[in-house]
Amino acid sequence: MSKEENGFYQVFEVFSKKTDTSSLQHQFSLLAPNRDLAFIMAKENFFRREQVADIWVVKREDVKRMSQDERESMKQLNKDYRETKGYGYLKKKWRQYEQEQLTEKDIMGGGDK
């Protein structure tokens, strides 16, 4: 049987959440002829012992993945202006005005308690 005829071995990527509040994480991949079978096999193949709260299966074809070059380019991105990095001098400045700089906790503290 040629591969074109045989659609049994399709690659599915399996993602899961450990608890209701955790983020989705990639686990591994498996072969299945379709999504429903991929789904019923995923649980016992990858979560026989670990706790799991939710499982997603996605056909690999449907995932846009990065090539090696694209991944290389990610490493070179450097956006200091989006970070707190360049603002170290402010602490000293506020001291000149006899004020303490607001910490991350002070800034975030106004939200949910």
Partner: peptide, 11 residues
């Protein structure tokens, strides 16, 4: 019929 199924069935 399939390795992945072997694992699921065994459970």
């Amino acid at each position: 019929p399939h390795i992945e199924e072997d694992v699921a069935f065994s459970s």
